[in-house]
Computed example of a mutant assay.
Amino acid sequence: MKVVNGHGGGSFLVWTLVVQLVLCGSGVYTTDSTKSCTLLKESDSERKVLNRLEPLAHKNFTAETKIGTESYRYVFQLCGDAGGVPGAGVIQYESKKTKPTVIGMYNATQAIGGSDWVMLIYTNGDSYDAHCSKETRKAMIMISCNKKVDMGQMNVVVEDRERGQDCFYLFELDSSAMCEVLDSRISAGSIILIIGFCLLAVYLIGGFLYQRLIVGAKGMEQFPNYAFWVEVGNLTADGCDFVCRSQNREDARAYRGVATEPKEEEPEERDDHLLPM
């Protein structure tokens, strides 16, 4: 008895592990990675916008650009250490420098969203050396809906540093995660049609089996209520013939037209031969 219980307990643990693995693979168990982002001003609306970006978590997105002889490479990660730099959401690698420049920190995040886009803003990056009044850098990532790609290539749009303040780096990224999911709702008419088709299928299949197996019908007589439907078909055909088909009918006498062609003169009958001689 103990052996049986032991096998039963082992089977239960195995099945539990299998179910957990299936659920994890299907996405039922998810890690709320966006909680790592600290909003500048905590609000439910911005937190909901961040939650929409959950499918993009734990992934590094890179982009490269070249200005003159200098080349730059950017790395972005959602609410994670970009390029392994602690606290950095976006970093910049310059060809002439070995140490990356932090463009924005994910502990100073803003999130603005629409129906099919999200603007993610990382602030408190490294300070400019001689531009923008030496203020801290800021990264803006525009993530837009694109149903054709799960996670597209990140592109550098512009680095706006030719102003006194509020300079920024602008990036763009396409993802199907931003596309609005439409709830599929079946109308009342569709439900009625589905029920009607189901009843018709049950009627035809059940009637066919009854006629063939119970009654022993053959050929067209296997069709349920064959005589009734033949009669209905004949009556329908007669009705269509009466309503739709034209037949030759004589016009009423009052509507007969007057003949335009002159009638031929009939030969005059002579009765001279009847006179006595």
Score class of each variant (00 low, 15 high):
residue 2 K to H: 11
residue 7 H to A: 09
residue 8 G to N: 15
residue 11 S to A: 08
residue 12 F to H: 00
residue 12 F to S: 04
residue 14 V to Q: 01
residue 15 W to T: 12
residue 15 W to S: 05
residue 17 L to N: 06
residue 21 L to W: 00
residue 27 G to A: 07
residue 33 S to P: 09
residue 33 S to V: 15
residue 34 T to G: 00
residue 40 L to E: 04
residue 43 S to R: 03
residue 43 S to G: 02
residue 48 K to P: 00
residue 49 V to S: 04
residue 50 L to N: 02
residue 50 L to H: 01
residue 52 R to S: 01
residue 56 L to K: 01
residue 57 A to K: 07
residue 58 H to N: 10
residue 59 K to Q: 14
residue 60 N to W: 08
residue 63 A to M: 03
residue 66 K to F: 11
residue 66 K to M: 08
residue 73 R to W: 13
residue 75 V to N: 03
residue 78 L to K: 02
residue 79 C to W: 08
residue 81 D to T: 11
residue 85 V to W: 07
residue 85 V to N: 06
residue 86 P to M: 01
residue 86 P to K: 08
residue 86 P to G: 02
residue 89 G to T: 02
residue 91 I to N: 04
residue 92 Q to F: 10
residue 92 Q to M: 09
residue 93 Y to L: 06
residue 95 S to H: 14
residue 95 S to I: 14
residue 101 T to M: 06
residue 104 G to P: 10
residue 111 A to F: 06
residue 112 I to K: 14
residue 115 S to E: 10
residue 118 V to F: 06
residue 120 L to C: 02
residue 127 S to I: 09
residue 127 S to R: 10
residue 132 C to Q: 05
residue 133 S to E: 08
residue 134 K to T: 13
residue 138 K to P: 01
residue 141 I to V: 13
residue 141 I to W: 01
residue 142 M to F: 12
residue 146 N to P: 13
residue 150 D to V: 15
residue 151 M to E: 12
residue 153 Q to C: 06
residue 155 N to K: 15
residue 156 V to Q: 00
residue 156 V to L: 07
residue 157 V to K: 00
residue 159 E to V: 15
residue 159 E to Y: 09
residue 161 R to I: 13
residue 161 R to T: 15
residue 162 E to C: 10
residue 164 G to I: 13
residue 168 F to P: 03
residue 171 F to N: 01
residue 172 E to L: 07
residue 173 L to N: 09
residue 173 L to S: 00
residue 174 D to E: 07
residue 176 S to F: 09
residue 176 S to I: 07
residue 178 M to Q: 03
residue 179 C to W: 13
residue 183 D to K: 15
residue 184 S to M: 07
residue 187 S to I: 10
residue 187 S to D: 05
residue 189 G to Y: 10
residue 194 I to D: 04
residue 195 I to G: 03
residue 195 I to E: 03
residue 197 F to M: 04
residue 200 L to T: 02
residue 200 L to H: 00
residue 202 V to N: 05
residue 207 G to D: 01
residue 209 L to A: 08
residue 212 R to I: 06
residue 216 G to L: 03
residue 216 G to A: 01
residue 217 A to E: 10
residue 221 E to C: 11
residue 223 F to S: 07
residue 223 F to P: 05
residue 224 P to T: 03
residue 224 P to R: 03
residue 230 V to L: 11
residue 240 C to D: 06
residue 241 D to I: 13
residue 241 D to F: 14
residue 248 N to K: 10
residue 251 D to E: 11
residue 251 D to G: 14
residue 259 A to H: 11
residue 261 E to Y: 14
residue 261 E to P: 12
residue 261 E to V: 09
residue 264 E to R: 12
residue 265 E to L: 12
residue 265 E to D: 12
residue 266 E to I: 15
residue 268 E to T: 15
residue 268 E to I: 12
residue 269 E to M: 12
residue 272 D to G: 06
residue 272 D to S: 05
residue 275 L to M: 13
residue 277 M to W: 14
